[in-house]
Design a binder for these strands. Structure first.
Length: 283
DNA sequence: TCTGGGGTCCTAGGACCC
DNA sequence: TCTGGGGTCCTAGGACCC
């Protein structure tokens, strides 16, 4: 059974806009170091990865020390690590001993260590699903695992229901994704204060379009669908998508589509956020 | 978490085609 | 009183992740 690890950078996985660039730089640095430990790495964000260490000859202890030392040396930060037969359990394990821990989970631990946990600890369960499950008197992962799959289908649909059924049993066959094609490029901003002025909204959208276009060209993609997003002061959020005939990456074409979408939103309230996304991509 | 920004995936419904 | 069925594309919104 292959072993995988997830690690998380500590001390706090909070988003700090001020430190963001430094954090991102450190992130790139230690990921390159981790790649020298094993090339089978899935990048899950700025401070988290999965590594497949099943082919390595060294013991878990030696590998873990190498990872911790490398991260400490490069970033000065600690990390927590989970080792398990799949990504789901490795991820949950990495959260179990937070500051600087190592948690090893395997199939035999599911009943004793996974099932007592609150449902919210299961990857993929957010606030909405948590409250839905609590209304069904389901509080722990074990109680979730006791539900027949049909019940989960009824409440959560076929796809997500099936996911919950398997995840609550610690089952996860998903492979490590070492590379994936981007599906979309986007930019959005939240205004310091809610905006009513159309000029400001239009100017901001044009700037975001420029950034998205630059980003796409930089990565060598064109897009057919451009989506505008508006969030009002009351947090109501609307999106309007425009699909064009030919794949495009130029600022003008994207701007045209973006403004066509914007026109279809009734801007009768103060605007808090505006964003633009390109999708339906082609290399 | 009265809420920042960049992503992914899923669902439901409508339009349109044969 | 009748109103098929399947496939594909597109849209809008929601849930979740770091």
């Amino acid at each position: 059974m292959p072993l995988r690890t997830a690690y998380r950078l500590c001390p706090h996985a909070v988003f700090l806009p001020v430190d963001f660039e430094a954090y991102a730089t450190a992130s790139r640095l230690f990921k390159s170091v981790l790649l020298s430990i094993t090339p089978i790495m899935e990048d899950v964000g700025i401070d988290e990865v999965f590594l497949d260490i099943s082919a390595l000859a060294d013991t878990n202890e030696i590998i873990v020390d190498r990872i911790k030392d490398a991260i400490k040396e490069i970033t000065g930060l600690t990390c927590s690590i989970g080792i398990a037969p799949n990504k789901l359990l490795a991820k949950i394990g990495s959260d179990m001993q937070k500051p600087e821990g190592l948690t090893i989970l395997n199939e035999n631990d599911i009943e004793s260590r996974l099932w007592p946990l609150p449902i919210r600890k299961l990857y993929g369960i957010g606030p909405k699903t948590e409250s839905h499950l609590k209304n069904m008197d389901i509080e722990t992962i074990g109680q979730l695992a006791a539900l027949p799959e049909e019940i989960l289908f009824d409440h959560f649909g076929k796809s997500y229901g099936h996911y919950l059924y398997e995840a609550s049993r610690g089952i996860d066959d998903s492979p490590l994704i070492t590379y994936w094609e981007p599906k979309s490029f986007s930019r959005e901003v939240t205004f310091q204060e809610d905006i009513k002025n159309w000029q400001v909204i239009a100017k901001t959208l044009a700037e975001l379009v420029k950034e998205v276009s630059t980003d796409m060209k930089h990565h060598g993609y064109k897009a057919r669908t451009i989506t505008v997003k508006i969030r009002f002061h009351d947090f109501k959020t609307f999106t309007r998508a425009t699909t064009i005939t030919n794949y495009a990456d130029s600022e003008e074409e994207i701007r045209k589509a973006a403004f066509a979408g914007l026109k279809r939103i009734d801007l009768n309230k103060r605007v808090r956020l505006i964003g633009v996304r390109s999708s339906n991509l082609q290399k």
